[in-house]
């Protein structure tokens, strides 16, 4: 125990200020400036990519583009958008993301709901099962063998099903459900609502924040995924756009013409501006949704992490 010695004068002077010396204020100012600079630094890569996407290949190759487009044009956008493979892969990404997120949300919410019932026998085991898979897994090849033997190679299911439950998301959801007032469910039970009624009419409507957060997390995960596609898909027409982009860089780092072939572009040059445009178009949906969901996920995740 620290003995509290109250200095009456200091109390009279009101809280703070007494020791909020010049040093502290200088620190505050420095901190503010530093964090603003840091933000600028975080944004810099985006700005460069954006600038390059509107620049002429000549200017990029001369190393002139850093903050601002040089030789402004939108030809690159037009070229990429005319690329059929790109749009097809883009469509695949949308399809995989929507399907995957829908499945994931059903599995995660139902399982989390059951886990959140304190009276349930075997609840600890069910949680243990999930947590264990966080720390231990069969590894790459056994998964590969499984997907192959299920006949899921070169189908959407290889992309969508293996990631259907993220244990982290599951636990966040579980603690959110646990934090809901018990009285509501009890009252609903007395009014004759069954488990499904409680789940559908009481619990889900009260969980909009956490549901929004989980939808964001899952859809971002499916949108960004390329490894599953890389492993399980051989046909270009099934690729998601991330794999299209990956092949673009993989190609560009060897030779430009090979890159064009890998990406299926007709232009001879997979130059930086094409990469930049593809990147921008890949990232835009995430950046558009993110600000709307952000206010939810900060509360959602905080709830989960404080309790979990």
């Amino acid at each position: 125990m620290v003995t509290t010695r109250i200095d009456p004068e200091r109390v009279l002077r009101g809280p703070s200020r007494g020791r909020e010396t010049r040093g502290t204020r200088v620190f505050g100012a420095f901190n503010t400036v530093f964090l603003i600079l840091l933000c600028a630094l975080m944004l810099y890569p985006f700005i460069t990519v954006l600038a390059q996407s509107f620049s002429s290949p000549g200017a990029i190759n001369a190393g002139q583009v850093s903050f601002w487009p040089v030789g402004f044009n939108t030809d690159t956008y037009a070229a990429v958008m005319q690329n059929e493979t790109f749009w097809r892969n883009y469509g695949n990404t949308v399809l995989y993301t929507v399907t995957g997120t829908a499945i994931a949300m059903v599995l995660t919410t139902t399982y989390a709901f059951v886990l959140s019932k304190p009276h349930l026998k075997g609840r600890k085991v069910l949680i243990g099962i999930a947590v264990f898979t966080m720390f231990f897994n069969g590894g790459l090849v056994p998964n590969y063998v499984l997907i192959s033997s299920l006949g899921m190679k070169n189908t959407m299911w290889a992309i969508v099903l293996p990631g259907a439950i993220s244990v982290f998301n599951l636990l966040v959801m579980k603690s959110f459900f646990e934090s809901l007032p018990k009285e509501l469910e009890e009252a609903a039970q007395i009014d004759g609502l069954g488990w499904y009624g409680i789940f559908g009419r009481i619990v889900l409507p009260l969980s909009k924040a956490v549901i929004a957060t989980m939808i964001l997390f899952y859809s971002v995960a499916f949108w960004n995924d390329w490894f599953a596609a890389f492993l399980y898909l051989d046909k270009t027409e099934l690729f998601p756009v991330t794999l299209f982009l990956r092949n673009l860089i993989a190609g560009a780092s060897t030779t430009a013409s090979e890159g064009a072939a890998a990406a299926g572009t007709t232009t001879a040059l997979v130059s930086s501006n094409i990469q930049a445009v593809t990147m921008i178009l890949t990232v835009i949906p995430i950046l558009c949704i993110y600000p709307f969901v952000q206010r939810f996920f900060v509360t959602g995740v905080m709830l989960g992490s404080v309790k979990g």
């Binding site: 995660t108 399982y111 709901f113 059951v114 999930a130 998964n143 063998v145 499984l146 293996p162 488990w195």
Partner: peptide, 27 residues
């Protein structure tokens, strides 16, 4: 029983996509 039915899909998921590969790791 209805509660168990609700978590069945999740349980199947864990069995098939998480635990089956662990068993498959015997290769």
């Amino acid at each position: 029983r209805w509660l168990f039915l609700l978590m069945l899909p999740g349980l199947v998921y864990f069995a098939l996509f998480r635990f089956w590969p662990m068993y498959g790791a015997r290769i």
